[in-house]
Amino acid sequence: MKQISLIALLFICLISTNIFAQKNKKLDIIAYYTGDSKLIDEYEVNKLDQIIFSFCHLKDGKLSVDSPKDSITIKHLVSLKAKNPKLKIVLSLGGWGGCEPCSDAFSTADGRLKFAKSVKEVSDYFKVDGLDLDWEYPAIEGLPGHLYQAVDKPNFTELLKILRSTLGKKYELSFAAGGFQKYLDESIDWKAVSPLVNRINIMSYDLVNGYSKVTGHHTPLYSTNPKEESTDRAVEFLLKAGVPAEKLVIGGAFYTRQWKNVENINNGLYQAGEHFQGADFKNYATTYTEANGWKYFWDDKAKAPYWYNEGTKTFATSDDIKSIKAKTEYVKSKKLGGIMFWELTLDSFRDGMVNAIYEVKTSK
C-alpha cells in the first residue's frame, strides 16, 4: 500500500513538474513582418508564435488591405498554420506614417462601429486570428502633420470596446504602445484598456529616435540614469498601473540607428550628432567590423551594445544577440507575455535574433 502511495506521489510530482515547465515556457515570440508571400518561407516560422502582417490602413474609415500582393501574402501567412497550428496571424493597422486618418475616423461612435464591422469582414475573409492597432499616437504628436487631439485617449478606449464586442472573446486584440514616458502618461487609459486586449506590444525601441540631435541607446533594457527611457522603465510603469504581467510584451530592434559627426568622447555615447540611416541585423557582421574602423562596446548597466567608428566619427546603437537574450531572460524573470520585434525581414534566415530568443525561451 505504501509502495502504491509512493508511486502515486512521484507521478503527481512528475505531472506538476511538467505543467510548471510548460507554463514557464509560455513566452510568445511575435514577429512584425513586412515581406511578401515567398520571403517568409526562408525563416524558421516554427519558432514563432505570432506573425503580425504590417501594414493595413484606413480607407474611407474601413480596414483596407492595400494591394493584391498584400492579399496573397496574408493568405500565405494563414496557410502556414497548417504546419504550425499554434501560430497566430494578426493584421496590423497603421505604422509610423500609416494612421493619419485615425484620430478623425475614431472620433465618433458611428466611425468606430464602421471600422469594427470592416475588421470583422476582413478577418472572416482571410481567416486571420486578430488585429494589432499601431496608432502612433493617440492624444500626442506622432508623425509631424498628423492630427492628434486630447479626445483620442477616451476614443481609443471606446474603439477597443466596440472591437471586442464585435469580434468576440476569442479574437486576438493587441496594440503597439510607445515605450516612452509621454505616451505612457498621456495616450492611454491603462485601467480601462488592459481588460479589453490580449496583449500590449511595448515599442521599447526608438527611445532615442531619428529626431534626436544627441546619441544614446535606442532600445536599452535598463535606464542608466533616472531620466533615460528604457524597456524596464516602461514595464515597471505599466505593472504599477495595474496591467497584468502576462499581457505585457517587450520589443526588440533588429536594426541600428546611426549618428555622424560624433566626437570621440565616451566612445560616442550621449554626444551631439546628426542621425542617418542605420543597418539591418543581417548585415551587422559585414558592416560593424574592425576592418571598417568600428569598435564594439557593451553597456553593462543598460544591457545594451553600441558601436563607434573613430575614423568616420560615427555612432550606432541597437539590439544584438547578447542584448536580445538579456531581454528574453527579463521576460522570463518578470513572467511577461513575450517578446516582439521590428521586424522579421531584418533578421538572418538562420542563427539570428529569432533563434537567440528561442534558445532562451526553451532553456531551463
Rank of each mutant, 00 (worst) to 15 (best):
V331K: 08
Y255G: 04
Y296F: 14
F281Q: 10
F276P: 00
K313H: 11
I339P: 00
A285G: 06
Y296H: 10
Y270V: 10
H275T: 03
I339L: 14
K301Y: 00
Q277D: 02
W307H: 08
I324W: 01
D299H: 06
T287R: 04
Y330I: 14
N266I: 03
D280T: 08
W307V: 12
F281W: 15
A285C: 03
W307K: 01
V262S: 02
F276I: 03
K260H: 01
D299S: 01
G293D: 02
W259Y: 04
K327A: 10
T287D: 04
K332G: 06
G311W: 04
Y308I: 09
A253K: 09
N264H: 14
G293N: 09
A291H: 03
F315G: 07
T328Y: 02
K282P: 00
T312C: 08
I324V: 11
F254R: 03
A302L: 11
T312Y: 10
G268E: 02
P305M: 10
G337D: 13
T287Y: 09
F281L: 13
Y255R: 05
Y296A: 13
I321G: 01
T312M: 15
T286V: 15
Y296I: 11
K327F: 06
A285W: 07
D320T: 12
A302F: 05
T256K: 06
T328H: 05
N267A: 13
L336C: 11
I265A: 13
N292W: 05
N267C: 04
K282A: 14
N292D: 13
K322T: 13
A291T: 08
K332Q: 15
F315R: 02
Y288P: 00
S323F: 05
N309W: 03
N266D: 15
L336T: 09
G337R: 15
Y255I: 10
A253T: 05
G293M: 10
K334Y: 11
E329A: 06
T256I: 10
T317L: 08
K282V: 07
G252I: 13
K327C: 08
G337T: 09
G268W: 01
F254P: 00
G293I: 07
D300F: 04
G273K: 05
W259H: 05
N264R: 07
G338C: 06
Y296L: 10
T286L: 04
Y288G: 01
Y270N: 13
K303E: 12
K327Y: 02
A291D: 15
D280F: 14
